[in-house]
Every structure is written in structure tokens, then in C-alpha cells.
Design a binder for these strands. Structure first.
Length: 570
DNA sequence: ATAGGGTTAG
């Protein structure tokens, strides 16, 4: 019977069950569980009512069956009716509340249960962490009597998912120090954290441990490794990991497709999309975001259109706002602003700020100030706190010489108190991460960095570089001038990387805001002068600078503005 | 035979 159940041949299993001369508790429970876990609660219930031997296993299987099928009320009804509960029944019910994000009821049961085991605590830790209450999660983690490797994985995941990368790494270190076995989850989370903060060297070290532990080829760990290499700027190493993952799932394919897209290798991304289909992996919404953004970053308008249409036709995927945003971005970059607007009007839901942002970006590239203003207005209405949009609109005004409006934007920002996100860039050198902000002189080797930049500046000028900042200085306020004359964070990080990273190896720099146009130009010259490959990750994509060109330019991926302004943020 | 942790977009 269980052989048939493993192959999900429920009907055949049932026939055997019905023909069994003697049925014990295990046969009844097995059959009930299988109906429950395959979403057939009606049949499970009928059998449950017929069963002559209902023990705690039977009842708990029904509870968890209802939970897995989203019938929380039925689960609770059964739970309350149970003549006898064990710790597993309680845990199942608590997990049900956690999954439906009802931490109040989960907490009530957790307090009420007569005895708890590690699973009970772990479920609550995950629940609080996923609801954003990491303090409570930590509190339970510290208080629980016997932590196991799942508890550690849960708390590391909690920090990682709540954006506290440092604490996630710290807990990983402590887990090891505590003598706990590093399990797949812990590796998965910590690799994902490395990807977030672009800790490439650390990621590679953890890769080594992953290999030792024999986790390299599994899906979760393999996918996390793959994503780590993609997001740390090494698409080649990412591909090597991808090749070796056994039984690649939809996430593996999505990650490599998105990786190629974000590195500006659109054709490669689309090639993998075709391979994915040949491997009979069903694309999902995330896949299509990757595919459409690949088309967008590569300027493939017609192919983008084709894939957009095939989404619903071939895969039954309903386009969401991200898909529309990709398409509007694609059409907009190509200068087809009317098509972009028409597509926006045809959307079955209201456009969000990101979608208007795509239209605003396109307006800037093609100098359509009135459309840009309209888009910006919508964004201000939807997200008044979105400072990035003020910058974009200012740049739009600046590029059409409307300095009065630029100043108006500045005072509007001051009046509304939009918080300015400070720009910073970082580079990893010998296992530590060096962070820079505009005009930064806090670094221990600051003098050397500036001296090196001076030298580079001379050689860049000889190479034909003209500083864009000098060109606009007469049109900006004094305060802003000061910022413009200072070195932007990306330049400082690039310079430091060149100084410290052995030649022959790429210099990888990361920035929390989009790269400044002037720096983008400068870095092209720098890459040529020093003969290095410089890879720069900004929130949007990777820029590969080599021999005086960047791979984002072939299709005018429009880094930022035509004229540098509002450098306040860099 | 019943319960707990993890990866991809934005």
C-alpha cells in the first residue's frame, strides 16, 4: 500500500486498503494521512469517521491535514474535540496559526500547552521573525531550554530576512562556536546574507565549507550559492555552480536567468530561458520578470513583446505590476513613449510608483519633460517619502535647462523633509569590507587614496575625460557645489580596490544608489588606464567596465542623468 | 503513521 502512496496512486492504495483482511491502526492512519496530504479532506474525514481505532495519530493527522488545506477553523474544531493531545498535536496547531500569520493565537496556545519541545519553540521563533518582531524571536531563542540546529537556523533566517546581515553572520559564527552542526538551512541563509552585502570573499569561504559538508549539489544550498555569486558580481562562477546543481528547480533557472539579465547579458539570459523550457521546468512569475528585464536591458523590444504575450497564452501566468513595469521600461527606453503609455492605460489595475518610475526614466532619456512631470506627480502622490524620485525629476529639469524648477525641487524636498538616503559604496579587500561616502576622509589610508585619485585624474584628462561637474557649476547653489567638488563614494571605492586587489583580478565595487553619470564616465577611463576589469553593482544592475567601455551602454541603459546635479546624494 | 528551519524578483 505505501508503495502506491509514494507514487501518489491513491486510488490503487485505497483498493488494497479495502481488500485488506485485517486493518490495524497504522493502516487506517496511513490511508487517512495520505488523503489529507493530497488535499482530499472530504475523503479523509469520511474515513476518519468510519475508523474503529482513532488514536492521537489519527486526530493529529486530521488537524494538520486541515491546516495544509487552509481550513484553519476546521483544524481548530478537531483540535478542541481531541480526547487526548500530545506535544505534536499542539505544535501542529501552533504552526497553523503561524502560517496564517496569527501570532496572537499562536502565542496563546504556546502559553497554554502543558509541555513544550524544541519544535514548539522553533515554530514560535520563526513566526515572530517572519512577522518582523525579531526582538521577540530572539527573546525566545535565548530563553528556550534546549536549542537544536533548527533553532539556530531559524534565528539566522530571522535576522537575514529582516535585513540585519551583520547579526545573521554573527549568529552563524556563534552557531559553529556552540558546537552545533551547520545544517543546510544555516548555510542557505548565510549565503543569502553574503549576497545581500556582497561579501564575496566570505561567500567563497563558506562555499568551501559547503563542499566539505557535501551540500553543494542540493537545490536550496545550490541556489543560494548561485545567487551569492550572481549578486557578488561573478557571473562565471555562478554559472559553474548552476551547472552542478542536481535536479535544478524553477528557482535555479530563475536565478541564473536574472543573474545574466542583471549583468547585462540579455542574450545569455534568454538562451537559458529556452533551455529551461526544454528541460520542462514550468516558468513562473519570477522567471518572466527575469526574461522581460533581460529584454529591457538588451533593448530587445520585439522579443519582449513576444514573451509578454506568451506569458498568459503559453504558461497561464497573469501579468503583475512588475511585468508591466518591465514592458513600460522596455518600450520607453526604445523611445516608444506612446506605446508605453497605452500599455499602462490597458493595465487591469492602478499603476504603482515603480511603474510610473519606468515612465519617468524613459521621459528623462528622451527629454519629454511634460510626461516626466506627470509621472513624477503621480509618484509624489503615491509615495511622498520617495526621495529618489525628486532626484530623477530634478535631473529631468536640469537636462532641459530649467534651473528655476531644479531649485524649486530642492526647496520642496527641504520643506517636506524627505529623508535623504546617504549614498555609499563599498569594496571587499582581504576579507574586510571598506565603506566610503562622498568626500570621505575617515579611511585609514585616505591620504593614499586621494593621492592615487589625483594621479588618475591627470591620466584620465590626457585620455580625453572632461569632468561633467565643472560644466554645471554656475547653475547650482553653493552648498551643492561643495558636494559636487568632492569625490563620490564610487570613485573612492574603485580607487581603493585598484590599489589593494592584485592586478589581473577584477575590482568589484557595490553602491546602494545608482551610479552617478560623471563617475560612470570616469570609471570607463580608469578601467582603460589601469587595464583592469571593474565591476560595479548598483541597485539596478551590474556595470562591467573594460577597455574604456561599459557593457550597459550598448543600448543606452541610461545610468542616471545627462547632466550631473543633485550630487548631494552621492 | 502525526509537529519545526532554508533559495530566486522588488
Amino acid at each position: 500500500m505505501s508503495g502506491y502512496l509514494k507514487k501518489k496512486r491513491l486510488e490503487e492504495a485505497r483498493q488494497i486498503f479495502d481488500r485488506m483482511p485485517v486493518r490495524d491502526a497504522v493502516s487506517w492512519n496511513t490511508m487517512i494521512t495520505c488523503y489529507a496530504q493530497n488535499g482530499r479532506m472530504e475523503e479523509a474525514r469520511k474515513l476518519f469517521e468510519k475508523s474503529p481505532i482513532r488514536d492521537v495519530f489519527t486526530w493529529t493527522a486530521m488537524v494538520s491535514g486541515y491546516i495544509q488545506n487552509g481550513q484553519l477553523h476546521d483544524a481548530r474544531r478537531i483540535f478542541d474535540e481531541m480526547p487526548e493531545k500530545n506535544v505534536i498535536s499542539w505544535n501542529a496547531m501552533i504552526a497553523g496559526y503561524v502560517q496564517s500569520k496569527n501570532m496572537d493565537l499562536a502565542g496563546e496556545l504556546f502559553e497554554a500547552m502543558p509541555c513544550r519541545n524544541a519544535s514548539s519553540w522553533n515554530t514560535m521563533i520563526t513566526g515572530y521573525a517572519q512577522s518582523g518582531d525579531i526582538a521577540r524571536a530572539r527573546n525566545l531563542f535565548v530563553k528556550m531550554p534546549h536549542r537544536d540546529c533548527i533553532s539556530w537556523a531559524a534565528i539566522i533566517a530571522g535576522y537575514a530576512q529582516n535585513g540585519d546581515s551583520e547579526e545573521a553572520l554573527q549568529m552563524f559564527v556563534e552557531m559553529k562556536r556552540d558546537g552545533e552542526r551547520l545544517n543546510r538551512s544555516a548555510f542557505t541563509c548565510v549565503l543569502s546574507t553574503c549576497a545581500d552585502i556582497a561579501a564575496f570573499e566570505l561567500g567563497k569561504q563558506i562555499h568551501g565549507r559547503v563542499v566539505k559538508a557535501g551540500y553543494e549539489f542540493g537545490c536550496y544550498v545550490g541556489n543560494a550559492l548561485l545567487a551569492m555569486y550572481c549578486r557578488c558580481g561573478s557571473i562565471d562562477e555562478a554559472y559553474n555552480v548552476f551547472k552542478r546543481i542536481e535536479d535544478k528547480d524553477v528557482v535555479s533557472w530563475n536565478t541564473i536567468i536574472i543573474g545574466y539579465a542583471r549583468h547585462g547579458f540579455g542574450e545569455e539570459a534568454l538562451k537559458h530561458f529556452e533551455s529551461m523550457k526544454r528541460a520542462r521546468i514550468q516558468p513562473d512569475e519570477v522567471t518572466m520578470v527575469g526574461v522581460l528585464s533581460a529584454c529591457s536591458h538588451t533593448g530587445l523590444v520585439e522579443r519582449g513583446r513576444y514573451y509578454f504575450d506568451s506569458m498568459s497564452q503559453d504558461y497561464g501566468i497573469v501579468a503583475n505590476s512588475k511585468h508591466y513595469t518591465c514592458m513600460i521600461d522596455l518600450l520607453g527606453r526604445a523611445g516608444r513613449l506612446d506605446d508605453a503609455q497605452n500599455l499602462m492605460r490597458s493595465m487591469p489595475f492602478e499603476p504603482d510608483a515603480a511603474t510610473w518610475g519606468a515612465l519617468l526614466g524613459a521621459s528623462r532619456i528622451h527629454g519629454n519633460t511634460s510626461l516626466g512631470e506627470k509621472a513624477a506627480e503621480m509618484i509624489f502622490a503615491l509615495e511622498p517619502w520617495n526621495s529618489g524620485m525628486y532626484v530623477l525629476l530634478s535631473n529631468l529639469y536640469a537636462s532641459s535647462g530649467r534651473w528655476v524648477d531644479v531649485r524649486k525641487m530642492r526647496s520642496k524636498m527641504r520643506d517636506t523633509g524627505v529623508n535623504k538616503i546617504p549614498g555609499y559604496s563599498w569594496v571587499e579587500v582581504q576579507n574586510s569590507i571598506h565603506t566610503f561616502s562622498v568626500g570621505d576622509s575617515n579611511h585609514a589610508e585616505s591620504d593614499g587614496i586621494y593621492a592615487f585619485l589625483e594621479e588618475l585624474d591627470l591620466r584620465m584628462k590626457r585620455d580625453g575625460y572632461v569632468s561633467a561637474t565643472k560644466l554645471v557649476l554656475h547653475d547650482v547653489e553653493e552648498e551643492e557645489k561643495q558636494h559636487m567638488l568632492k569625490c563620490h563614494s564610487e570613485k573612492l571605492a574603485v580607487a581603493y580596490g585598484i590599489m589593494k586587489i592584485p592586478s589581473g583580478r577584477p575590482v568589484r565595487v557595490f553602491k546602494n544608489l545608482r551610479v552617478c553619470e560623471d563617475c560612470h564616465t570616469a570609471i570607463k577611463h580608469i578601467a582603460k588606464i589601469v587595464g583592469r576589469l571593474i565591476i560595479l553593482r548598483d541597485p539596478n544592475r551590474f556595470h562591467h567596465f573594460k577597455d574604456g567601455v561599459c557593457n550597459c551602454e550598448t543600448i543606452g541603459d541610461g545610468n542616471v542623468c545627462t547632466i550631473v546635479i543633485m550630487n548631494y546624494f552621492y
